[in-house]
Amino acid sequence: MEQFLINPDCMVYDNHPVTLTGEPYHYCPGCGHGVIHKVLMEVVRDLGIQEEVIGVAPVGCSVFAYHYMNVDMQEAAHGRASAVATAIKRVRPQNYVFSYQGDGDLAAIGTAETIHTVNRGENILMVFVNNAIYGMTGGQMAPTSLLGMKTSTSPYGRDAASMGNPIKITELLAQLPGAYYVARHAVHTPNAVRKLSKAFKNAFEYQKLNRGTCFIEVVSNCPSGWKMSPVQSIDWIEKNMLPMFPLGDIKVPDPKTGNPVMVKNN
């Protein structure tokens, strides 16, 4: 039998950072959540801030994020992660605080909390995992579902006239003065994972500056919800998700002044 070897260049993460509990993920095969958890927790390990981090888990597939991330965490009600994170950071400004939410949680039921958290410029990292579908409840339409996309509640495809357009909430949030660092990344290739890792690192570093909210969207996949194989779902990200949700920095601190500025072409 031919031995299956991973090209060392493609190894983007270790097996067991101390910042993960080691509990096996409950995620479906090919799902991006496991990779995002691992990248985030590797950054926490690399920065040596495990003792200072407090995370907030959402409602959705990553509802059990605290089973895997080995840091103090709170489980928030659906949509309210950023309100919970706001309060934690306000009463414990010495800690690093992050929230982790999916598209339904952050961009539908929690839109008000999302916008006002960023508008207040809360000094937290908001991680927004966008896979364009409600995974946990079984593949219903999400606020970011693409036009024409078939889901269990848009069985004939999402239609703009009756269901609205997919919301680009990340671009919307970048307009707010409270947003300090806004970027969109992905986890569908090793290179994308490396860039995401760098973005998480930047975000935690910026949190020390007390300058505002860091918001990182991660375009991810949902093979089960999309009814595809993991490999097909990666192709689908490239062909369908990325044209709608282009990757890259949207708002970054100016290296000279430290003031956040919008990146051109975004």
Partner: peptide, 11 residues
């Protein structure tokens, strides 16, 4: 929900 977060952080 802010009450939840702050109380959970011990305040």
């Amino acid at each position: 929900n802010m009450i939840y977060g702050a109380a959970g952080a011990g305040a």
